[in-house]
Design a binder for these strands. Structure first.
Lengths: 114, 114
DNA sequence: GCGATATATTCACTGACATGTATATACACC
DNA sequence: GGTGTATATACATGTCAGTGAATATATCGC
């Protein structure tokens, strides 16, 4: 399937699975309990997470233990780093103001009427 | 549409748009040149990015200038922070080893022997 | 007013993906 | 061997998101 980290985390079920692994490795069965989808679905999501580098597997008897791997998180962090100046208060110079530029953001509530 | 930051960035075209705005605000036309999709597509992606908080808009004559907003980036950073211990070399204690757990990742090439 | 330019929206299509059910594979234990 | 449990895969289905073409809206200059 070959997904990049953003696509891999775009699915809420996959994010739940990742969070279920935050505190260490777990067998599929335990993940199923927290994922909110059937075992077959979890298995497919785990495959995607594995292919995108988010998890590792190791056999343990008839079970398979999944665990998080650091690489894709590092990758996300590196990407974010390129935008860090957006929020790491560098508002002292007006270059920042040029980029931040009046947060309207409530554009939906804008236009009291027309 | 209501997208969370991960879904918003899952689309490659939207990531290209975000990158096009890294160095400051731009009108839609310039973004179209870099996005690789037609103007109507860019407009729709900009709407999604706006609804998810990634960009702000301000009118400038007959054009509209889009710019990045910091909030969703902060949000992503906060999420990532919960996993930072995965890669911020805290391998000095074996608690980390429990979680990192032998990066197999090349599960295909796994286990030269054991 | 009119025409031209910039951007947004509607419509129809298509492809991808998440899901469940059912089935297959792998391993453990007897 | 056989039976039971744990996990993976195949198949069919429905939904949704990204796309382009065409159209609508807004703003400028005259």
């Amino acid at each position: 399937m070959q997904m990049n980290p953003f696509e891999a985390l775009a699915d809420p079920t996959r994010r739940r699975i990742v969070e279920a692994l935050r505190c260490g490795e777990r067998p599929v069965g335990e993940i199923v309990d927290r994922a909110g989808v059937r075992q077959s679905g979890v298995s497919r999501h785990l495959r995607i997470l594995h292919e995108s580098g988010f998890v590792s597997v190791r056999p343990d008897g008839q079970r398979r233990l999944y665990a998080l791997r650091p690489e894709p998180f590092r990758e996300l962090d590196a990407w974010l780093a390129g935008y860090r100046r957006l929020w790491e208060a560098r508002l002292d110079r007006f270059g920042a103001a040029l980029e931040e530029r009046r947060g309207d953001r409530g554009a939906t509530k804008k236009e009291p009427r027309k």
